[in-house]
Structure formats: structure tokens, C-alpha cells
Amino acid sequence: MSVAKIVSVHSFRGGTGKSNTTANLAAQVALAGKRVGVVDTDIQSPGIHVLFGLDEAKMGKTLNDFMHGKASMKEVAFPVHEHVSAAPGFEKLKNAKLWLFPSSINGREISQILKEGVDFNKLNEALQNAISEMNLDYLFVDTHPGLNEETLLSIATSDVLVLILRPDDQDMQGTAVTADVARSLDVPHLVLMINKSLAIGGEIQILKENTEKQFNAPVAGLLPLSFDVARNASRELFSLSQPDHEWSKELRKVAQFVLSLE
């Protein structure tokens, strides 16, 4: 591994399973033996920490502290592999190397950083420091949905942009614009992932091909809409607890795709 990669995971709309996907992707890449970090840049509505078993009581330094010069990224890093929870399948991460860089869930701190705005260079410094201080191979960035300024910053710094889309009109429309913006910002790799798909059998290939044509980017995985995932997604990492599920298989395809990128 020569160069660390920043992988931003983004979706135009909320409710596409973005945080859930990011957490699962990061876990799968970590299970492949890589040193992985996850930064929650969704400063408006952070949430990914819950999936890694980090609750309010345990939360120490945050990305906000780094932004205000009050902590180093190393101090912000929460070693997920050292805090393996009782959630099903989580013990698999015991031998992995996975750190979470959480965003503050304190309301006052959230409004403060939103008021000040996020500086491109400062955010970039956060990402670069996370990589160098923890010697990471991959740094996943969980972004805020939509195309606000913070999100554009995240996209602009990434080497890989994973765009999650739901096969419905409004989401496709917004995702198309996001893809155009990512190209305009010279993001080297654009990867699509369809979530909550209802396609079955031959339709899967059609949906895949049509989407690739519309966005001019590869679809690395097509994850089915599943009640099993909906039931369990908020309290466990589904690809770890139910690795044989169709959703998990497709998610691993996306992880493999990310791992294969040069």
C-alpha cells in the first residue's frame, strides 16, 4: 500500500442508508486487513458513531475539537476494534484496525461550527492528519446529504466518491447533479451504489446498465430493499451479523471494488 485513499460516501437525499453503508464498507475494508478510519463530517446531524457502539457517555474528543485547535486527530480517534460491543458479529472486528473520528453531538458545538463555517484547508488538514497519525490505508468520510458547502468540501478532497442512490426519480435527479459536480471537481474515481432496490432477476442487470449509462460511472453493487436490514441496521453492522444475506454480499462487492481501485 503506497498511498492512503480518502473515500467519501455521499447521497443526495437522506434515508438512503448512507451512514449504515459507510460503516459497513469501512468494516469490510478493515476485515480485508487494511488500516481504516471513518470520519463523520456530517456535523449537522452526526450519527455513524452509534453503529460502532460509541455512545454519548463514552464520546471523548471530537472533530469539532480538532477544528478549534483543542485536540489532535490522534486524540479524536476512537479505536473501534478495542471497544467491541456485544452486537452480533461485532467480535470479528477484534483483530481489525478501525478508528472512528466522531463529530460532536453537543447542540451548542454543532451550532457553533455551523455558524463559523468549515474551512477547506482545516478540513483537509483533519483528513491528512488522521491518515498520517494513525498510518491509515483508507479513510472513509461520512458526509451530510445534499450539496451544501461542507459536502462540497468533502467531495473536493476525496480520491473516491461512492454515491449511494435510491432508484426513484427525485433521488436520481439529484444524484446526477452530484455526479456532474464531482467530475467538475476532478474526483478521480466515481462509484455508484444502488440501495433499497426492488429489482429482481433480469431487471437487476437492466437497472444496472441504465444507471451506468445515465451517470457514466460504474455501479459496484445493487443492494436490495430488505426488512431484515431495516430492522437491524440501527443497532448492528449488518454485513457482520448476517454475512450470507444478499444485502451483505452486494455490499462486499462495493468494498472489493473500492479495494481494487488504484
Binding site: 426519480d169 436520481m172 429489482a199 441504465n210
Partner: peptide, 13 residues
């Protein structure tokens, strides 16, 4: 119905 849903998904303005 499913084809209808899949087809509608590609209406990008």
C-alpha cells in the same frame, strides 16, 4: 408493477 417502478426511475430531467 415492478417494471413500471424500474422504468419510472430513469426519468432524469
Amino acid at each position: 408493477l415492478r417494471k413500471e417502478v424500474a422504468k419510472l426511475s430513469f426519468e432524469i430531467d
